[in-house]
Structures are given as C-alpha cells and as structure tokens.
Design a protein around this nucleic acid. Sequence first.
DNA 1: TAGATTGTTAATCGATTAACAATC
DNA 2: TAGATTGTTAATCGATTAACAATC
Lengths: 223, 223
Amino acid sequence: MKESSIPKSVILRLPLYLRHLEELNQRGIPTVSSQVLGDELDLNPAQIRKDLAFFGDFGRKGIGYNVSFLTQNIQHILRLDESWDVALAGVGRLGMALCDYSKSRHRALTITHAFDANEEKVGMVVGDVTILSARTMSTVLRQSNIRIGVIAVPASAAQQVCEEMVDAGVTALLNFAPVLLKVPKHVHVRSADFTSELQSLAYYASGANSHSSSGKGTVHEKW
Amino acid sequence: MKESSIPKSVILRLPLYLRHLEELNQRGIPTVSSQVLGDELDLNPAQIRKDLAFFGDFGRKGIGYNVSFLTQNIQHILRLDESWDVALAGVGRLGMALCDYSKSRHRALTITHAFDANEEKVGMVVGDVTILSARTMSTVLRQSNIRIGVIAVPASAAQQVCEEMVDAGVTALLNFAPVLLKVPKHVHVRSADFTSELQSLAYYASGANSHSSSGKGTVHEKW
DNA sequence: TAGATTGTTAATCGATTAACAATC
DNA sequence: TAGATTGTTAATCGATTAACAATC
C-alpha cells in the first residue's frame, strides 16, 4: 500500500483554484465550468477536472461546479478548515515582510511565533507577533505543537535552524535561504530563493529562449 | 524552425548548479563528477549530464567537470556574464527586503531602480537605491533599457503595474502579488506567492500525503 | 592498462491533453 | 428534448532515469 498519492503539481494548483474561486464568490458568481475556469487561469479544462477528481465528485454534469461548495472542499483538502500556527525563524526585513503578509490575509495560516538570534530584537512586535529569542525556539515549538516553519535566516544558519525545527516537530518548511536543506524523508521543504529566481529570469530576458540557437557555445577552449 | 528550445525545468536547475559550484570553488575543489554533484544536490547524475549537454560538452570522460570552467559556462548560459539592471515596483517591507538582498549578493543582477506610488516614500534610500515616484516609472524604464522587473505591489495594482512595465520594454517578471498576470507571449513571468506556498504546506504538514486515504470525502452533501 | 566518467540513446515514468459515454 | 459539462479512460507529450559505447 502507500501507493496512490496525489501528484505534487496538483497540490500546488489547488491554492490557485482557491484564490480564483474566492474572487468568483465575491463577484457573486454561483457556478463555474472547468472550461471557464481554465480560460481564466490559463489551464486546460481537462486538467482542472482531473485534479479535482482526485478528491471527489464536486461537479454536476451539464452545469459545472458550485463555487462555494468547491471552495469549501478545496479548503478541506488543503486542511485550511483547520487553523495552523506557523513559526518564523529570522526576523530581518524579509521576516518582517512575511509577518505583515501573515497578519492581513488568510486566517487559516498565521505566523504566531517569530524567533531571532539577535537579542536586541527580542521583545519587538512585528505585525501581531512578539519576537522571541532563538535560544527558546526548540522549547517553545515543542510546547505549541507547531508543524509549519518558515526559514528566513542567513544561509550560514539555515541548516542548523532547520534541524532544530525538525527536531521540535516541524514537518513542513518554507525556506528562503539560498541553501539546499537536508531533511528526513517525512519532512516536506519548499524553497523560495530570490537569487535563483532572478538568475533564471536573466536567461529569459536575454531572449536566449526564442532563437533556435543550437550553437553550443563554450566560453573558453577546453581546460 | 523555432522548435528545440530548452526545457524550463533545466533553466530552473542551472542556478542551483551554479550555487553549488561556487561553493566547491571556494573550498578549492577543482573537479567534480555528475555522481558527486548529484549526491550533493540530491539529483540524478544522468539528469545533470543531460542538462549540461543541452549547451555543450563541458566534461571530460573519466574525469568529470572542471569546477571553474563549468561555472563560467553556466554563467554564460544564464547571461550572468552580463550585468542586468532590475526594476522593482512597490517598496513596502517586502520590496525593501528585496533591495537588501540585491545589494549584498550577486553582481550580475542588481535592483537599480525602485518605484512606489506613495509620494512620501519618494527620495528615500533603501539598500543602494533611491525610491522614485511610480508616475515616472514608464519614462525611466524606457530610458534605462531595463528588461527585468520585480512586482511587489498590492494585488489590486499588480496587473496595471505589469502592463506599464511590459509597455516600457520589460520581458521578464518576478511577481510577488497573489494575482495571475496577463502578459503577451514574449514576456516571461515567474510567480512567488507566499500565501499559495503556505497553503500547500498545510496539506503536507497534515500528513495528508502519507496515508493512502483514497476516501474521497466531501464537506457537505451535494448542493 | 584498468577504472572512472562522460555524452547520448533507449526505456521508463509521470503529467498533460483529448475524447467520449454518462447525465444534468 | 437538446445542449452543456462532468468524470474517466485512452493517447500524447515531456521529463527523468537507466544503460552503455566512447574515451580520458
């Protein structure tokens, strides 16, 4: 057993569906077909139907999907009908920005704990949270039963912070440090590296993609 | 013609290779095999060889890849041997964090222009750049010939800012706003949405993946 | 030479898209 | 009823991995 797990690509699309459904809901649109949703999200309608069919029969033939029913179900699938406390390590400018985000938006996921190694920051309030000392992280995380962590510390500290979080029970991590984190198999890591993103953009900005430049050019002669 | 373009997945891995090669270089390691690199990056060695082979023959049979030679070549492929000015729209906390990042690291990509709609921020210096008025963006971008843009404005403003950037010649965008940007075909967009990332983490944190819970549960009865 | 490792072709795997019977 | 649209199976496409001759 264990087999049939849901493709990662599907899980990554669910939040996009959700975001759009919420917009449709606000516009008072009661029903949407995979065709229309696909047009609006720039996705193939068959893909949308297939994605949703992994989890249940949410649509009605001839009619489409009820927006609020589907919204509720996707929220349930992603476990956004529960409330998740999120721990942040590293409250530099990026960490502060994340606290802000977390404050305003979504209720299901909130940064409730923020830690920093700089003792001068301890006690400061950012968004809604008070910065705690990194030295207390392990203890606090264990007590609060937190499973989701965000790493926004310098690259040099990331692996160690990661291990501390994992040891304290965190099983899902969003990592902003430009490092490949080593984690046990049961831990899920998503990486968000600004530098890498920009670097791949340079390739596309140069137009290197659009030419059929099969000219395999090397910088210098062989070494 | 036009056909054989490089898979996106390959372009996204190149920055990771680069990052690791730079580390090897610092450690004074002159040569690396796809086997070792794969171990360290958690990738299949065949995949690494295949990725690199899209662009040239950078290795030596029986020996592996010369670290600095390969570094130079990947830099060239990604056009990081040129210097890219990057424009930032939206200098909230996130935008400021990005300016910081941009200052310290990489020379090839630097945020050289930052714009904000809040006139009170105009003139402020963040990192190395002076904040300019959003009203001047179009003109300034055209003059400076910028091709890479970063969008860190509120969702409600993102599409319009995007269009202004594209009209001014930007062809590659990194979008932090939780919106699907509509762009012409020649423009490349990467999306970095904190909320969506967190939402998919909740799924994994719940352990929903590890059970073969084929129980297609719905929240309520059909509507 | 013998061992290591590439570049590349073939095999596999997974994800996307098309097609269509079922049915609202 | 006729038209629309689902859920699902089959076909296609693309990306990853294995295998191996070439060769350092």
